[in-house]
Amino acid sequence: MAEPGAYARRSFVYRELAACGARFRGAGGAAVAVDFGDPEGERRSLARLGLCDLSPLPRIGFRGPAALDWLRAKRVRGLDRDNRADIQRSGALAVRLAPTEALVLGNPAGRGNLCDRLEAALDENPEPGCYKAMRRDGSFHFLLAGAHAADAMATLCGVDLRPLAFPAGSVAQTSVARISTIVIAVALGEVPAFHLLGDSASASYAWSVLVDAMTEFDGVPVGLDAVRHAIGANAGRSAG
């Protein structure tokens, strides 16, 4: 176990997590809430409705006219349509946000580290027209998972996020509870989930609003272990 304060990088909501009884473990230079004292219960909650803070984990953005080509040259798959997410071999997620912007989310299950690899590559060999976007600092990153995830989001977001209208791989850059947010639909095995990325300065606000929206469906904060379990239990499909 670790304390968030022991790391220079800290989640934007580590106080909220600690107040819910989070137990932290070091990962990628920061403390991640791995569970809230009830790993079994959290796995069950996640199938119904759970909210997990992935903010301390790696993610990075690339911008500029050459960004997509550069990523393709680095063998990042997909990127052929705006507002579309594609799962990479490592389990990372590559998202094309615009013809000049992409986003890469590391695999929460932690295999490989595409984000760090790409960042190092660009730092070493800068590419004209391809610029880094500090998504790990500029955006919070939460995962809202479970059968009721779309129901809970419907109280906050005006885009139809039900599975039929917004299947895994769909991306909406929209307004959630009045803050600009990137919503990415994924499937953690059988469990539908949304990656939510928004203004990091609004992280506390967004967390509290989401926790409030979950109460209707008995949703609770869950630790990273519950997410990893859901991914791991269905590793074949989620990496597909």
Partner: peptide, 17 residues
């Protein structure tokens, strides 16, 4: 609430604009 078709993001509530 009107719908506006954004060339990048498709149809959205006009409150996003």
């Amino acid at each position: 609430m009107k719908i506006l078709h954004c060339p990048l993001n498709g149809p959205r509530n006009i409150s996003e604009f």
